[in-house]
Design a protein around this nucleic acid. Structure first.
Length: 229
DNA sequence: TACCAGGAGAAAA
DNA sequence: TTTTCTCATGGT
């Protein structure tokens, strides 16, 4: 990843959409719970599930583990995959407590902390990196489906690279910068929602030469204009 | 109606 | 080792 190009994309996104104020949560633990619940799920549905959950219990690992798994699944119903997520949230809480909770985990260096999170069933690379960046403020770049899609259309990725390859590409290009990683990932998600979800099969806004289907509009067009001017 | 969403893990090839 | 399938509600 060309560093100048990588920063130019960030600048274009920041100019088009402004600060996103991520992660939308009150506490680090809430960030981590949200990271599990948002797996392949729209955030609006996660909010419903979180509201149902906090309406029944305090948002702590102990309280979640004290809840019957069927009741936990019922609370998580609006976020989809509720049976799987109930199991994953419980296993996460167990791993969270086994690691000494926030103080214990926070005392670990980034690499062992990432390893600990990845060893928890239901916590994959993206979920672990969400937690590292947004709950523990570690310089880890979060790669998601939007990242792959937007940067593939920008011709800055081929599209078939593995997760770790893409993560390393961003971290090398940008250097360890928590506030930048935080804002950049949020902007990629924002941009992906603005454009690519509406027209998933075209190169809307992200290609030189314009969208063949005529889908360019609004902030997406401004991003493109600033990138290719 | 059909498709997609801030993935992960198991099963099959 | 790589690809495919499963999990599921809610919005567009």
């Amino acid at each position: 990843m060309n560093p100048e190009r990588c920063r130019a994309v960030y600048a274009a996104l920041e100019a088009a959409y402004g600060p996103q104020g991520w992660w939308p949560a009150q506490t680090p633990f809430e960030v981590m719970v949200g990271a599990v619940l948002t797996q392949n799920t729209a955030w609006t549905n996660v909010e419903r599930a979180l509201a149902r959950l906090t309406g029944r219990i305090a948002l702590t690992a102990e309280a979640i583990l004290a809840l019957d798994e069927a009741d936990l699944a019922d609370a998580l119903r609006p976020s989809g995959y509720f049976n799987i997520k109930a199991r994953r949230l419980r296993s996460f809480c167990e791993g969270f407590l086994a690691g000494g909770g926030l103080p214990g985990l926070g005392a670990l260096d980034t690499a062992p902390l990432r390893q600990h999170l990845l060893a928890i069933p239901g916590v994959g690379p993206e979920t672990a990196d969400d937690m590292l960046l947004y709950a523990f403020a570690r310089p880890v770049f979060v790669v998601d489906a939007y990242t792959r899609r937007v940067f593939t259309r920008l011709r800055l990725l081929r599209g078939d690279e593995g997760y770790e390859t893409i993560r390393a590409a961003f971290e090398t290009a940008l250097g360890a910068d928590v506030p930048l990683f935080n804002a950049y990932h949020a902007l990629i998600v924002r941009h992906g929602k603005e454009v690519c979800r509406k027209h998933p099969r075209c190169d809307c806004c992200c290609l030189r030469g314009g969208c063949p289907a005529g889908h360019e509009q609004g902030a997406a067009l401004r991003v493109k204009a600033s990138l290719h001017s």
